[in-house]
Design a binder for these strands. Structure first.
Length: 224
DNA sequence: CCAGACGTTGTT
DNA sequence: GTCTGG
DNA sequence: CCAGACGTTGTT
DNA sequence: GTCTGG
């Protein structure tokens, strides 16, 4: 669940919309695209000076046999693995939508795009840490997205969903505190979700781009 | 079945 | 089936 | 998360 | 998320 999400094509608007000083001019984070685990994405946090900043982070903590890119909000505060992160390193993951695949008994899994009514851009609750990139063996800032129980129409598709923050809660979520503000991780009201079932063509179009692959808008042009 | 771990570096 | 790449 | 590959020798 | 141990 929430194994993929979407970011704005123009990353520069993130600085404005999340009230950060950074202009993101240094980001080379691709075009309109799905974000997949393992990719590097813009994340909002408080820097050492207490200012909001946008940082490029890798999505998912790679372990020897798997990658942890989601963390259950219910258990994160007591989990040995997540505890330190949720207390000391909370962040916001900007998104315009997230994707889910319906768990069907057999056959293809229908793909859905989920957005928030009246909010073209929103922030998912995240946590981060410095983590070794298994390929480069370098330490990199790395994040995971907190999840909660799904409800209502969402439950028809999947039983979990990403924790979406209220814009008025961004400050409290990022602020350093003795105890993590878990009360901000409310279940996303069902009526606020826009759920679109993607037809196979749309689903493929939304797939993550391969390196050096032209953006979707040019595919049709190149191939007539 | 559930609970708990889940990797490394390097040090508040 | 499992692993890797996106 | 899904989609796609999934090996080796050795050079037309 | 997924695996292991109890």
């Amino acid at each position: 669940m929430c194994g993929r999400y979407e970011t704005p094509e123009d990353k520069r608007i993130l600085a404005e919309r999340f009230s950060t000083r950074a202009t993101l001019q240094d980001f080379q984070l691709g075009r309109i695209n799905e974000c997949s685990p393992g990719s590097v994405q813009p994340v909002v946090l408080l820097n050492d000076e207490g200012e909001r900043e946008i940082v490029a982070m890798r999505w998912g903590f790679t372990l020897p046999d798997r990658s942890l890119f989601l963390a259950r909000s219910e258990g994160a505060a007591t989990s040995p693995f997540w505890k330190e992160m949720i207390i000391e390193r909370r962040c916001i993951v900007p998104a315009t939508a997230f994707f889910e695949w319906q768990n069907t008994k057999s056959g293809p899994k229908p793909k859905y795009k989920l957005g928030l009514s009246g909010r073209d851009l929103f922030g998912m609750a995240g946590i981060w840490a410095s983590w070794k990139n298994p390929k480069t063996l370098e330490l990199e800032p790395t994040f995971a997205i907190l999840t909660g129980e799904a409800n209502g129409a969402m439950r028809q598709i999947h039983d979990r969903q990403p924790a979406v923050l209220d814009p008025g809660d961004y400050e409290e979520w990022l602020a350093q505190d003795d105890r993590p503000p878990l009360h901000l991780l409310r279940i996303l009201p069902d009526e606020h979700l826009t759920i679109t079932r993607l037809d196979p063509v749309e689903a493929i179009r939304a797939e993550p781009l391969k390196q050096d692959e032209p953006p979707p808008a040019q595919r049709g042009f190149l191939f007539g």
